[in-house]
Structure formats: structure tokens, C-alpha cells
């Protein structure tokens, strides 16, 4: 769902901390028809120009709080990512991205459920799916591609 609008096309920017470029970020929307309990948000498959950036180097900013890594997000069991809201996905990468157009392949993982699924429930508690496999990709199970410019 919302395949072509999951990343806002003018939102790709480098992130600077203490005068150094430490990564890049982009505005993302929820790939579903409803919001999500934030703890269920399980990270992204994100491949930029052929390089995959795993969940461990990703952070997510939502609800006016500083960016959190996905181990912290996991603890947000009573917080809601509202359907209407854009979140900011941060990817830690020294030096950030070069100016110009970047090819991004993207899949969101949110472990929202429609009830018990004995085949995967316990497994996903122990080993949450790695984003990109389609597991936990909810309503947009395809990997979606974008060619968008770095704007800052």
C-alpha cells in the first residue's frame, strides 16, 4: 500500500552532528491503512545505491521525541504511531551520502497482527524477522524503489 509515497521524495538529507556528517535521513509514512502501536515497528530494509543498511544502524524519530534505535522503539508498548504522521528514518553512515540522485530500495517492517498466528508468534518474539524478507511487511510486501535527490 502507498508504494510510491512511503518515502517523501524531497526529504532525503544528510545528518550533521557537531559539525560532522554522521548519516542521512528521510521522511517515511506508514505502509498500512491504520496507525501502529510503536513497539511493533521493526525497522527497514533499506538499500541505497547497492549498499544495505541493517536495522542496527537505523533510528526512528516520531512523536516529538529524539531519534530512537529499534531496541528502544521495541519498548514503546504504549505509544502510537498515528496514521497521519510522518516519521523520520535515520541511517548512521559516516560522511553521509554524496549530492545527487540516489537509488533506494525500501521495505518497512511492522509486526502488526490480526490475531494469533501460532506458526510465527513465538518465533517473532525470539527472533524478529529481518526487514526485507517480506515477513512482517504488512500491507506493502513488495520492495519498493525510489530515485530521489539528496536535498541537503
Amino acid at each position: 500500500m502507498f508504494d510510491n509515497w512511503l518515502i517523501r521524495e524531497d526529504s532525503l538529507k544528510n545528518v550533521t552532528e557537531n559539525g560532522k556528517v554522521v548519516g542521512f535521513k528521510m521522511g517515511v509514512r506508514i505502509a498500512d491503512y491504520r496507525g501502529a502501536i510503536l513497539s511493533l515497528h521493526n525497522g527497514y530494509y533499506i538499500n541505497v545505491d547497492g549498499v544495505v543498511y541493517p536495522r542496527e544502524v537505523q533510528k526512528f524519530e516520531i512523536n516529538g521525541k529524539p531519534p530512537r534505535d529499534f531496541e528502544e522503539i521495541k519498548k514503546a508498548v504504549h505509544e502510537h504511531w498515528n496514521y497521519d504522521d510522518e516519521g523520520m528514518l535515520y541511517v548512521m553512515k559516516e560522511g553521509g551520502l554524496e549530492p545527487g540522485i540516489h537509488h533506494i530500495e525500501f521495505q518497512q517492517s511492522i509486526l502488526c497482527r490480526y490475531g494469533y498466528a501460532p506458526a510465527v508468534d513465538e518465533e517473532w518474539v525470539r527472533n524478529p524477522p529481518v526487514p526485507g524478507s517480506g515477513a512482517g511487511a504488512g500491507k506493502t510486501s513488495a520492495i519498493v524503489s525510489f530515485d530521489i535527490p539528496l536535498t541537503e
Partner: peptide, 12 residues
């Protein structure tokens, strides 16, 4: 209304 059984992430 929904039933997201993994909400707590540390158990079903």
C-alpha cells in the same frame, strides 16, 4: 478494533 498479539514484544 484490533488484536496485535506481539504488542509487548517480549511475549505473545
Amino acid at each position: 478494533v484490533y488484536m496485535d498479539v506481539l504488542q509487548y514484544r517480549d511475549h505473545v
